[in-house]
Design a protein around this nucleic acid. Structure first.
Lengths: 202, 202
DNA sequence: GTCTATACAGCGATAGAC
DNA sequence: GTCTATCGCTGTATAGAC
């Protein structure tokens, strides 16, 4: 049961909400059950009832994050007709995270990759692959429609976009400067637009 | 005293070496004094004699990393005549880190930014600024010499390069795939080369 | 400068009452 | 499903002998 209407989220979801924000701001090794419990006025034991292990909680976190992202990508497909609009909407998904003073969940976890339990590792790379696959398709179709252009394969261009946005997010987060990300995102996408934007006279 | 000749590094340096590698692979919150001590066959108390607090050790880590990077950038300036060669050499500095199965020290720390003691935070952003400033100059001079071209300011282009390389490193590290980084780095730099490279017929 | 020993807080996790 | 209580371990850090 979910999404029926204005309904108070169940405890499991509220735990995930708090834990997600903590991981996005402090990292998986930078938060504890005690932190989550305190925010929800629960006890650590209460948390363990819903998520017996921290590894399981982490896996659930990434899975939910990925499935929400997939939904958001589907909405972008519906709401945006051309490739450029879709790319801008995609970058705006990242910007929305940053505006809440958070990092991309999977960007943070990628930095902690070696310390993660195996199921979480797989979930993190899956998130990245899902993103790249969606972008690859957008770029492929956009190239066919002469909306975008790029050197090399659509796959490589897609990977470049993911890397660029994740990196821009990482740096902007450290500087606490969302505008830094916006500028980078604009630069990355404008570099794909065809014909070239009239940014300045050559 | 340092750099006089084949000399066994002192204990302080060896501690920094081990700690640096651990942070680059596991994060600042993912390693402990015990980890470092074990590798060096020392005791935790012995470590505390050299670095009384973990915060101080972390600060020393970033400062040394930055000053080494500054030296490397100076060597690039000497060894490479044109902007494109300098950019490729710059990207190769990152690739060298990744080849050792490590992340950029400051990239990892940026992800953990909120949990870092203030002196470390400042050291991390300083590293990023030093990188951007060096790149900005290379791009500025390269543009004047018609070796590179880009939309917008050299500063924004420099920030785009740092973000792109850091992000590519983050993703490549998660996939354990150095080739992924190489491809991204090539894509980023080729996008700046002028006139456009003959990658394929338009 | 390195050791043994220890203090003390925090961690993830469990048992068992309600 | 939430609680109290506690376990075993690890974390950073310190005291004091050598």
């Amino acid at each position: 049961m979910s999404g029926l209407s204005p309904e108070r989220p169940d405890t499991g979801s509220r735990i995930l909400d708090v834990a997600e924000r903590l991981v996005q701001t402090r990292g998986f090794n930078g938060f504890s059950y005690a932190d989550v419990a305190a925010e929800l006025s629960l006890t650590k034991a209460g948390l363990h009832h819903h998520f017996p292990s921290k590894a399981g909680l982490g896996k659930a976190l990434v899975d939910r994050y990925t499935s929400r992202f997939v939904s958001a990508l589907a909405e972008v497909n519906l709401g945006c007709a051309d490739a450029v609009a879709r790319l801008r909407a995609y970058a705006d998904l990242y910007a929305g995270v940053l505006r809440k003073d958070r990092m991309c969940l999977c960007g943070v976890l990628a930095a902690e990759y070696e310390t993660l339990p195996e199921p979480m590792r797989l979930a993190v790379t899956r998130f990245l692959e899902v993103n790249e696959a969606w972008l690859e398709r957008v770029l492929d179709e956009g190239e066919a429609a002469a909306e975008v252009s790029f050197d090399g394969s659509a796959r490589d261009a897609a990977r470049l976009v993911v890397a660029g946005l994740e990196g821009a997010m990482l740096v902007a987060h450290a500087f606490g400067d969302t505008a830094r990300f916006e500028a980078a995102a604009t630069g990355i996408i404008d570099g794909l637009v065809r014909p070239p934007l009239p940014t300045r006279a050559g």
